[in-house]
């Protein structure tokens, strides 16, 4: 167990080292940082002075080491465009993204499991067939087209919901939330649905497959023979046993939600980290790009590490292969 976790941890560290090296090299590949700071009309002497101040004349390894020390302390430097600390910008934007991801995850998990159980139990009903066909279309549609379609239907045509932005934000102990006002709820509905659809379909299909498998097993037959009510069998016995793989998939997909939030946030102009990243790419704002790269890599490495360790705890077969 100890060796296994150590091994995974070493791999995670290796990945982070590679990603941070890529982020670091961004600064040197992409334009001259001095130009980005002083503008066009600085004199040669001023430029040289700034170069020395920033330590850009030091050996590359020394610069890398300094970058890593700063990053480890959460200091990603100043944004070229907005001239504010990147870490502060990310922290400001993070609540919006996290609330969106949270709302999407709730929708995906709740509706996904309900529909999955239904289509698993009533396999041949026409409602199930419709649900499955619609879900197939949902998987193959690009996210941004779903977003545009929802905007046109609910914001332009029916005028029920706002088309973009995050309204009704109030501050609650340093955390800016939009989940406590009616306006906030109205503005999060469309982006949250858009972001959740793909994951919802995955969960639906997984739960359905697991339910079909479990419903054939002996202990379900035995439960029926005991004369238990359908409700108790379906939810008490069957669903409970499908949840282990479902929980793993949900865990792994949280990362996917954050990745796809880049697209959803752009479609709905949702002021989160994803939109910030796309805008940073537009303006070649290297510090933000580098910070986002490290942030996302860290997120995925941590999620994968947790899932790996959970697998290890749950499944004894891996334990034998690992050591």
């Amino acid at each position: 167990m100890f060796y296994f976790i150590l091994n995974r941890l070493a791999q995670a560290l290796l990945v982070m080292a590679v990603v941070s090296a890529i982020s670091f090299s961004l600064f040197n590949f992409v334009g001259d940082p001095v130009n980005n700071m002083v503008g066009q009309d600085a004199t040669r002497e001023q430029r040289i002075e700034i170069r020395q101040q920033l330590g850009l004349d030091d050996p590359i390894l020394v610069q890398y080491q300094r970058f890593m020390v700063n990053v480890a302390q959460g200091d990603f430097g100043l944004s070229y465009r907005i001239k504010q600390p990147v870490s502060q910008l990310i922290l400001e934007r993070l609540p919006a993204t996290l609330e969106l991801v949270f709302a999407s995850a709730i929708i995906a998990v709740f509706i996904g499991i309900v529909l999955g159980v239904f289509t698993g139990i009533r396999r041949y009903s026409w409602v199930s067939k419709i649900i499955m066909s619609v879900s197939l279309i949902g998987v193959s549609l690009p996210t941004f087209i779903i977003g545009i379609g929802l905007i046109y239907l609910f914001a332009v045509y029916l005028r029920w919901l706002p088309s973009s932005g995050r309204a009704g934000v109030i501050e609650l102990g340093g955390w800016k939330t939009s989940l406590l006002t009616v306006d906030g709820w109205r503005s999060i509905i469309l982006p949250a649905i858009t972001l959740s659809l793909f994951q919802l379909t995955m969960i639906l299909r997984l739960v359905r497959a697991e339910m079909l498998e479990v419903m054939r097993s002996d202990y379900i037959k035995f439960a029926r023979a005991r004369g238990l009510a359908n409700r108790a069998i379906h939810f008490g016995h069957a669903l409970r046993n499908t949840l282990v793989p479902v929980i793993t998939i949900i865990g792994l997909n949280i990362g996917g939600l954050i990745a796809y939030s880049v697209i959803t946030e752009t479609v709905f102009q949702w002021p989160g980290t994803g939109l910030m990243f796309i805008q940073a790419v537009d303006f070649v704002d290297v510090p933000i790009m580098a910070a986002y790269l490290i942030f996302v890599a860290l997120l995925f490495v941590v999620i994968n590490l947790i899932v790996d360790i959970l697998y290890f705890v749950v499944d004894p077969r891996i334990r034998r292969g690992g050591s």
């Binding site: 961004l26 590949f29 992409v30 990362g255 996917g256 990745a259 796809y260 880049v262 697209i263 990243f277 796309i278 790419v281 790009m289 790269l293 996302v296 890599a297 995925f300």
Partner: peptide, 13 residues
Amino acid sequence: IPGILVAILINGI
């Protein structure tokens, strides 16, 4: 890491 994110990153760089 989801493909689309990798593509956005490489494309941006």
